[in-house]
Amino acid sequence: MKVLVPVKRVVDANIKVRAKADETGVDLANVKMAMNPFDEIAVEEAVRLKEKGVATEVVVVSCGSSACQETLRTALAVGADRAILVDSGEVELQPLAVAKLLKAVCAAEQPQLVIAGKQAIDDDANQVGQMLSALQGWPQAAFASKVELADGKAKVTREIDGGLETLEISLPAVITADLRLNEPRYAKLPDVMKAKKKPLDTTTPAALGVDVAPRLATLKVSEPPKRQGGGKVADVADLVNKLKNEAKVI
């Protein structure tokens, strides 16, 4: 069984991003980039499926600029077999466009399972996995915290408001990874070296026949209202007094 994992190159999760002064976007100059943390979890899950003998091949795909090769190499270093870059240059890719590109990749690769991160930590859209699933007419299991595969079926535990839900779906399907699905491994140095020799093919939206023109125009990107924090209280009595008499919230 072939597993396809889409990975996105995003700003590192530890960096506090700021809007640019001219409000045209966020300031990403000289900012550390990394694989989207949820995608790391998705890659890890796919690699574990291969290690268990359930999956035969793990293919990672990234849509974006040529810099995404770095992200793909990271995935190859932790155990993916092969990578595909859909090089869109500097064009902004919105979730619907990415879902369509992945649909085209699925048509060529015929995976039995797509494992995606549930959300990218830059645009926080939480859309691509569900959109791909819909475009393929496949079942979906979003926000997965446990995946068991057997006999062409997946039993997936999902994190939902209020607790957990267990879903049974037939393959092919799309699963999106939540935080607690697994703990991704770190790449070992020899594996990083080996990853450089693994195949990485490049294609483009045009070659895949996909129109990726943005549907949403971003009019501006601004700083959120600043919170006046930093106040301190001397002790518990002071805290209780201020909550009662100053903030009047208790």
Partner: peptide, 22 residues
Amino acid sequence: SSAGKNFMPRVAALLDVAQISD
């Protein structure tokens, strides 16, 4: 919510329109 996030992107994709999240 977890329910809305689950089904709404399917709606947008099937209608071939963008979803504006959150």
